[in-house]
């Protein structure tokens, strides 16, 4: 099915439209915001999303695809409802993050990067999240969780499992 913005996405898109010059260059600046809004609505960037974003920003699908693949936060496939992003950069690993990550994957029964069979959790390793003073840092969807330990992560996962 072809993708298009729902009403609230369209409102958000118009809000972003006011930030840039009213010319083709300004419209091209909307590629990344449009990809974000699409991902918030659709969960990931599908081929249909790419075509749609190209259309509404006056750019080519190939350009939009090039942008999509450059930025790691744009997902090219569906992930679990709770997207667990473990920072394992220098400070977080000093504080044990690499072990927490490996063991959490084991407990979830997945390999790094995979999604649990119930579609609830995906676990990935990410680079420094800019919260090293309260490391290890875990980002779940948009939210940061700090001072993580294995048991804290386990508690969080149990909470998410219970959530609707």
């Amino acid at each position: 099915m072809a993708f298009s913005f729902n009403e609230s996405s369209m409102n958000e898109f118009h809000k972003w439209g006011k930030k840039f010059p009213e010319n083709p260059e300004g419209r091209r600046s909307l590629v990344i915001p449009a990809l974000w809004i699409s991902q918030w609505q659709n969960g990931y960037i599908s081929k249909d999303v790419v075509n749609y974003v190209a259309e509404i920003t006056g750019t080519e699908p190939l350009h939009v695809w090039g942008v999509t693949t450059f930025y790691t936060m744009f997902k090219r496939e569906k992930t679990g409802k709770f997207f667990l992003q473990f920072c394992t950069n220098i400070t977080c690993t000093l504080m044990g993050a690499d072990q927490i990550f490996v063991n959490t994957c084991k407990k979830l029964g997945i390999k790094p990067g995979e999604t649990t069979s119930d579609g609830k959790f995906t676990a990935v390793e990410v680079e420094c999240l800019g919260a090293c003073g309260s490391s290890p840092t875990l980002q779940v969807n948009d939210k940061y969780y700090t001072h993580m330990t294995e048991s804290e992560v386990e508690k969080l996962i149990a909470e998410f499992r219970g959530a609707k």
């Binding site: 950069n89 220098i90 400070t91 680079e127 420094c128 800019g130 919260a131 090293c132 003073g133």
Partner: peptide, 11 residues
């Protein structure tokens, strides 16, 4: 864009 590993002041 604060991304230099170890940096967390701007946030």
């Amino acid at each position: 864009d604060e991304g230099e590993p170890g940096t967390f002041k701007d946030r």
